[in-house]
Amino acid sequence: MDQYYDYIKALHLIFIITWFAGLFYIVRLFVYHIEANDKPSPEKEILTKQYILMSYRLWYIITWPSAILASIFAFTMLFFTYRGNLVLTMPWMHVKLAFVLLLYAYHLKCHQIFKQLQRNEVKYTTGFMRLWNEGATLILFAVVFLVILKNTLSWIFGVVGIIVFSMLLMLGYKFYKKIRERNNS
């Protein structure tokens, strides 16, 4: 199995990228779907129907399969190679796995929102969705920094950096929201 490790790692990385692409785009589609509900007829019905179809295809053809395949290749790397056993003892990996669990929770919450919007049940605002969209970004930053900066001091600074980055994103969002409100007035 060790001779195939780099192939498995490459496939894992490819499906992580497509998984995140799906998560980034699905929440944008949620925003557009919610905004479509404020449009007059027949535009509302046309857009809603299109967003339901686009979301369905993205979610079940790209995002879910990518999540499953990324997980399969991750478990393969961890449990069928000697490197996996060594890596599981490292503190940075424990933190990374916590972020991966957070990613699964984020994915499942997106699935819940997806199912609601498939029934055209709008329970969230576009403002919430725009902030929710940053969740995957924060998880991605955290995991990449943890994987690249494996030593303890570096990943601690990386996690602190993620917290600072998330605060800057929130401030940026509030600034953007004020600009949008001013332009709509």
Rank of each mutant, 00 (worst) to 15 (best):
I162V: 11
L29F: 08
L153Q: 13
P40L: 00
F165D: 12
F157L: 00
L88S: 12
F145E: 11
N85H: 11
E43M: 13
T18M: 05
S71T: 06
Y106M: 10
A98G: 14
L169G: 06
L171R: 10
Q50N: 14
F175C: 13
Y106R: 12
W59L: 07
M54G: 03
L146I: 04
Q3S: 00
S71G: 04
I148P: 02
T63M: 15
L53R: 10
Y32H: 09
R119W: 12
Y32C: 06
E134Q: 09
E45N: 14
K44E: 15
Y51K: 09
L153H: 13
V122E: 11
I163L: 10
L88D: 07
M90D: 11
N183Q: 13
F157G: 03
S185K: 09
L78G: 00
S185W: 01
A10F: 04
L108P: 12
A136S: 07
I61R: 13
E181H: 07
A36N: 12
K177E: 02
H12N: 00
M1L: 04
V31Q: 13
F114V: 02
S154P: 08
P91G: 09
I68K: 01
S185N: 05
R57T: 03
G158H: 01
I72V: 06
A70N: 09
Q3T: 00
L47K: 14
W19A: 15
I52E: 04
A74G: 11
A36G: 10
H94T: 14
F165K: 15
L102D: 12
Y4P: 02
S66P: 02
V144F: 02
A74E: 08
L153E: 14
K123H: 01
V31P: 03
I113W: 05
K9Y: 01
H107W: 03
H111T: 02
I148G: 00
V159A: 15
Y56C: 03
L102H: 09
T48C: 12
L53C: 01
P40G: 03
Q118D: 08
V95F: 10
D6V: 00
N120T: 15
I16P: 04
Q118L: 08
Y104V: 05
R28D: 00
T125L: 12
V122L: 06
F175M: 14
N85W: 05
G161R: 01
I148T: 04
L169K: 09
W132M: 09
I26N: 10
V164K: 07
M1H: 10
R57H: 06
I46Q: 07
Y25T: 09
L102M: 14
R28K: 04
